[in-house]
Design a binder for these strands. Sequence first.
DNA 1: CTCGGTGCAAATGCTTTGCAATGTC
DNA 2: GACATTGCAAAGCATTTGCACCGAG
Lengths: 146, 146
Amino acid sequence: MDIQAAHDILTRHLKNGKQRATPERHAVLDAVLQSQGHFDAEGLYYRMLSNGSKVSKATVYNTLDLLQECGLVSKYRFAENTSRYEKAFGRPHHHHLICLECGDIIEFVSDKLERLQQDVCSEKRFIAHNSTLQVFGTCMKCRKAE
Amino acid sequence: MDIQAAHDILTRHLKNGKQRATPERHAVLDAVLQSQGHFDAEGLYYRMLSNGSKVSKATVYNTLDLLQECGLVSKYRFAENTSRYEKAFGRPHHHHLICLECGDIIEFVSDKLERLQQDVCSEKRFIAHNSTLQVFGTCMKCRKAE
DNA sequence: CTCGGTGCAAATGCTTTGCAATGTC
DNA sequence: GACATTGCAAAGCATTTGCACCGAG
């Protein structure tokens, strides 16, 4: 996955919206690109701090929204009050099975689902921007443990 | 839709969990049964107040969780920080197209989607409890308005 | 030079909690 | 009676905001 390409996408998006390319915004993007799996804004903030980046929490929140706008991160609202984010650059659109016992998240990709979703949208004359299927339940491990 | 049946479900669920059947809990259920579409906890609380029910906000929140547990209401977390609820008794499982411009929510039912979801779950050996597909985008009206 | 962005700390708003009083079982 | 539940107000938390300073264009 090309780090430069991601930064270019951000730069272009900023230019489009007549917004400025600040070092902080690109620093947040770097931190996101280094991330694995799901994370929350606070976690990213502290990871950045301990890596020596000086950003404020407010900027992290702001920039994450910005990154979502240009498709570089996905933002989810699972069961909790916390927003979860995930690097979205260079990976296919996918969905989540969320274990209510252990909090584990299983991802899956489904072309059928993507098509089905398109069908529904064109039937309702709705333009999809992004989407998330969340299935809450019990994962294999927790099922065995019971 | 049978109001009595809904109360029976709640009563049975409470008995199962060795929890008590209080008038407040049944009053919240009544308010939910009278509701149309999506609502939030605060809205339900004020509606109950103006109908003369005396419940605290805390009880409303508690009871809504209880009602979700026994499948009488569905709880959603759309884009906002507020949880949205919806009466789930006597209606098929459905999903949502959410317009980011006007906030309108379009519901749809899809057997195909339900089947697809079951397939994914059995493949991953995951036991689904409940699920929600949320498609964010622009609705027909807002699309025309632009 | 202009005005959008940043950092900080304080504010906001939803939800939960602590505790004494209440009422179910 | 015992103890789960309630109401109230206060506490918690994630997120946003206001404002003075800074720096990208």
